[in-house]
């Protein structure tokens, strides 16, 4: 059974379409949602988190229909969500904030709730900072705090919107480690701009551009879409859709490879740039 199923889902904000005819089945795994700003990633994740209703189409989350109030409550019991901007009560301590979310998650019995709060703070490495005010925590600690609240109650579906944004490389590695070894192995749906997060963490990647799904497969399959379309040269080639000078001093080009150029092994980054670059070209023409 899919953890999340979207059938022809559409959403508009005013006259601007955010999602158009999206079909997606998310199985238990770590799935990365990749796309430029304004692609509809956050809209899709907010729907998956039952915070936003679609204008058209059907959504099923953990086998239930979020449009029905009772089923929505059941979904929320089994859901963990880190929004793009989690927002904290800055004068609260880390413990207090997670305890508040635990109350909202209906973990009413105090002793059990506090045990649960300690458990998630321990997991994200914030136990020693539990009684520190949130305003005194670093950005990385706050991201971990956001993850801690989402892990309350051992969710079956974990939705993380740009959860690695603003983290330094070491914090991102720690974050990947935390997500990849979650004890209950929930279905994880994570949106990101970071293609290396996708390569390192996700069994599956979905590329969303301008509200439609442009790719759905494994990171290796995504990289393979750029086969034969990446080449390296000493000089910049104007025929490339995207090109940049690498640390080795050569230009890496992505696009329709000229016959005389030698292709190199593409990465997820190349394939993503090719997909999003093609979209930019199509829109500008």
């Amino acid at each position: 059974m899919s953890s999340l199923s979207l059938e022809n889902v559409g959403k508009k904000f005013g006259s601007t379409p955010a999602l158009a005819g999206v079909r997606l089945e998310v199985e238990p795994s770590v799935t990365g949602l990749l796309g430029p700003n304004g692609a509809g990633k956050t809209t899709l994740l907010r729907m998956a988190a039952t915070v936003l209703a679609p204008d058209s189409g059907r959504i099923r989350i953990l086998g239930r229909d979020p449009a029905h109030p009772h089923e929505r409550v059941e979904i929320r019991r089994r859901l963990g969500y880190v929004p793009q901007e989690p927002g904290f009560y800055r004068n609260f301590t880390a413990f207090d904030f997670v305890d508040y979310v635990a109350v909202l998650k209906d973990i009413a019995e105090r002793r059990r709730r506090h045990d649960e709060v300690r458990k998630v703070l321990d997991y994200v490495g914030l136990r020693d900072h539990a009684h520190q005010r949130i305003k005194a925590l670093s950005g990385g600690m706050r991201q971990r705090l956001a993850l801690a609240q989402a892990l309350l109650g051992d969710p079956e579906l974990l939705i993380l919107d740009e959860a690695t944004a603003g983290l330094d490389p070491e914090q991102r590695l720690r974050f990947r480690e935390m997500i990849s070894v979650l004890p209950q192995r929930p279905t994880v749906l994570i949106s990101t701009h970071q293609t290396d997060d996708v390569s390192a963490l996700c069994q599956r990647v979905v590329v969303l551009i301008a509200g439609t799904i442009r790719f759905d497969g494994t990171p290796a399959e995504l990289a393979a879409t750029a086969s034969d379309r990446v080449w390296v040269d000493a000089d910049r080639d104007e025929r490339a859709a995207v090109s940049w000078r690498t640390s080795a001093g050569q230009f890496r080009h992505i696009g329709e490879r000229p016959a005389d150029a030698q292709s190199v092994t593409p990465t997820v980054d190349d394939a993503y740039l090719l997909l999003s670059g093609a979209d930019i070209s199509a829109r500008s023409s």
Binding site: R46, A49, T50, V51, V73, R76, R77, L79, Y81, P83, E85, P86, G87, F88, Y89, R90, F97, Y100, V101, V103, L104, K105, D106, A146, Q149
Partner: peptide
């Protein structure tokens, strides 16, 4: 409410 969206996705939201 700074934590509105976090609360909205919970049972009590």
């Amino acid at each position: 409410d700074a934590a509105w969206e976090v609360g909205e996705a919970t049972v009590t939201g």
